[in-house]
Write a protein that binds this DNA or RNA. Structure first.
Lengths: 126, 126
DNA sequence: CGGAATCCAGCGCGATACTG
DNA sequence: CAGTATCGCGCTGGATTCCG
């Protein structure tokens, strides 16, 4: 997308410090799972809860709230009975989702390889 | 990427379940930070500990061990006094690192935007 | 249905001290 | 320098209950 400009923060420590702060906002496992799952069409609360399998209602709520607060998703309440709440990715959220999908794709491709490594290791340290 | 044909793991639930299992291996924040930081030249333990700023020595050790076990990094011990241990990314680790760098880049680019959203939100809910 | 509130267990992780 | 071992707490997150 946008090419990242000229002068990145210089030293390794500075770089990392920045990286840490920035990633902190999105790096927890629930957030990643939810972002990936919301993308790209509107999803309802229940849908998400079923999709992100083991997530509890409490954690899903908290995660969605944070994502909304950060401008990554939009929460829409339809005044109806029963209530209907839908979540959509904002443009920002969508672009993040793209990057995360790359990581997911990587994980899918390398899953078996990793599994083999892991097995081999376990056999040596039983 | 690949247009997914007729019947892969079809349902959303199944898809997500797989995603979750796969991401579980790499989705915790320390792992991400360490992978990004090891890349791409050899790093020594102390170096990493200083780079990944707030990480404790214990957690760094555990994280590196898991990464090694998964075949993402290589640990090399030089028989010397004082001991010298270096960590390098394997080809797999390097390719993962690439994907993660994308996410990092995203975070850098969108940092300010997110900050603004967050502020705006906080002003409304003080 | 979508959520808030409480309560509570588990383990993630930091702090500290000891080895080779 | 590069670890391993132990302990203890704090927060994450699950289960349950109640509301609009």
């Amino acid at each position: 997308m946008e090419v990242t400009p000229p002068e990145p923060c210089a030293t390794t420590e500075e770089r990392e410090c920045g990286v840490r702060n920035r990633l902190g906002r999105i790096s927890d496992k629930w957030t990643v799972l939810v972002v990936v799952e919301v993308s790209p069409e509107p999803k309802r609360f229940r849908q998400l809860q079923r999709s992100v399998h083991a997530i509890s209602q409490r954690v899903l709520t908290l995660t969605l709230r944070r994502l909304e607060r950060d401008g990554l998703i939009t929460r829409t309440v339809a005044a109806a009975v029963p209530p209907q709440v839908t979540y959509v990715l904002t443009p920002e959220g969508l672009s993040l989702s793209g990057k995360l999908q790359c990581v997911v794709a990587w994980a899918v491709v390398h899953e078996k390889q990793i599994g083999r490594y892991r097995q081999a290791g376990d056999e040596q340290h039983p």
